[in-house]
C-alpha cells in the first residue's frame, strides 16, 4: 500500500452520536490528526457537546472541557493561562464551537479573547444553523435557506454574517476558512495556526445532512460544491489581518448544482437562485479586489 495520506493515529474513536454523514465529525477527526495528542479542547453547547458521548464516556481520547454556550473563547483563555501557570507551555488549547456559539452567542467572549490575543486556536465548524437544538436559524444561515424558525413561507432573507471580516478587524495573527471536502488543506491550516502565538480563528464549512435535508452520502460533495460555486471561498488572512490569500485553483461550478441538492433551498425559484448567484459572484469579485488591494500596499 502507498503511504497514508494523513496521520494514522486516531484521537477520535467510533461509537459517537453524530448523525450519518456528519461534517462536524469529519472536521474534528482531521483537526485532531493535525494537532496530535498534546491538545486540550473546550467545547461549548453545540452538536459536539452531544456527539462526544454520554457521561461518563467520550469518543475523544483527549481532555475536553464542556462549557456554557457563550463561553468557549473565554474558557480557552483561562485554560491556556492555567496551563502556563503550571509551567505547561506546550499543550495546544483548541476551542471548538458551532456557528451559533460563534457568530451569535459566543461572539462577545470570542471578541474579548481575540482583542487580548490570548493563545489558542478557535475553530468554528459552520453548519449554518443551530442544528443540535432543532435547526433554528443563526446569523450564519445563508440567505434563502429554510430552517425551523425561517419556514419556506418566510425563508431567511438576510445574508450570512461576515464573521471573517469581524475576526480580521481584531488583528489576530491567523484566520482561515476551510471545507471538509479538502481535508489536507484543513489539516495544513490547523498545523499552520499552531505555529503562531495568539488567537487563531479557523472556520470550517461542515455540512449537516439532517439540518440541510440532504442525503448523507452527499455531505462531502456539498462541501466541495460550496467552494467551487464560490459560496464559501477558501482563504487565509495572515500578518494580523493585513495579508489575504484566496484559493482560486478550481473548476467553477454553478450555484444551482449546490442549492438544488439540498432540501433547505428546495422552495427557491430559478430566478431566486440566479439572484443569489449574482450576489455570490459580486462578493467573490470584491474578495479578489481586496486581495489585490492588500497585496499592492507597499511595505507589506
Amino acid at each position: 500500500m502507498k503511504p497514508a495520506t494523513m496521520p494514522t493515529e486516531e484521537l477520535m474513536g467510533s461509537g459517537h452520536l453524530a448523525c450519518q454523514g456528519c461534517g462536524a465529525t469529519q472536521a474534528m477527526r482531521f483537526a485532531l490528526k493535525a494537532l496530535g495528542p498534546d491538545t486540550a479542547l473546550v467545547i461549548p453547547a453545540c452538536c459536539w457537546a452531544v456527539i462526544d458521548g454520554s457521561f461518563p464516556h467520550s469518543c475523544i481520547d483527549l481532555p475536553i472541557y464542556h462549557t456554557a454556550f457563550e463561553t468557549a473563547a473565554v474558557v480557552a483563555s483561562g485554560l491556556k493561562a492555567g496551563l502556563e501557570m503550571r509551567g505547561d507551555t506546550k499543550t495546544t488549547v483548541m476551542a471548538w464551537a458551532g456557528d451559533g456559539g460563534t457568530f451569535d452567542i459566543g461572539l462577545q467572549s470570542l471578541s474579548g479573547a481575540a482583542e487580548r490575543n490570548d493563545d489558542f486556536i478557535y475553530v468554528c465548524y459552520d453548519n449554518e444553523a443551530y442544528m443540535n437544538t432543532g435547526i433554528q436559524r443563526s446569523s450564519s444561515t445563508p440567505v434563502g435557506a429554510w430552517t425551523t424558525t425561517t419556514p419556506v413561507t418566510n425563508y431567511k432573507r438576510e445574508p450570512k454574517k461576515n464573521m471573517i471580516d469581524i475576526m480580521a478587524a481584531h488583528s489576530i495573527p491567523y484566520i482561515a476558512t476551510a471545507s471538509t471536502a479538502y481535508p489536507h488543506d484543513f489539516m495544513r491550516k490547523i498545523a499552520k495556526a499552531n505555529t503562531f502565538r495568539g488567537t487563531k480563528y479557523i472556520q470550517i464549512f461542515a455540512p449537516c445532512p439532517t439540518g440541510w435535508k440532504l442525503a448523507p452520502e452527499l455531505s462531502v460533495k456539498m462541501a466541495r460544491l460550496a467552494v467551487t460555486s464560490k459560496m464559501y471561498p477558501l482563504l487565509e488572512i495572515t500578518d494580523h489581518g493585513q495579508k489575504l490569500e484566496v484559493w482560486k485553483d478550481f473548476e467553477p461550478t454553478p450555484i444551482a448544482e449546490y442549492m438544488k441538492a439540498q432540501g433547505r433551498f428546495r422552495h427557491l425559484s430559478d430566478a431566486e437562485i440566479a439572484g443569489i448567484e449574482k450576489d455570490v459572484e459580486a462578493k467573490w469579485e470584491r474578495l479578489l479586489a481586496k486581495e489585490r488591494m492588500l497585496a499592492s500596499i507597499p511595505g507589506l
Binding site: M1, T8, A18, Q20, G21, T25, Q26, V220
Partner: peptide, 29 residues
Amino acid sequence: FCPDVAIMRHENEYEINYDYCKGCLVCVQ
C-alpha cells in the same frame, strides 16, 4: 472521509467495521 472512523486501513486493503458503520455511504460517493 468516514465520519464514523469505521474504515480500517490495513497493509493491503481497507476493511469496513460494520459494528460502527452508520451507512452514510460517503465512502461510496
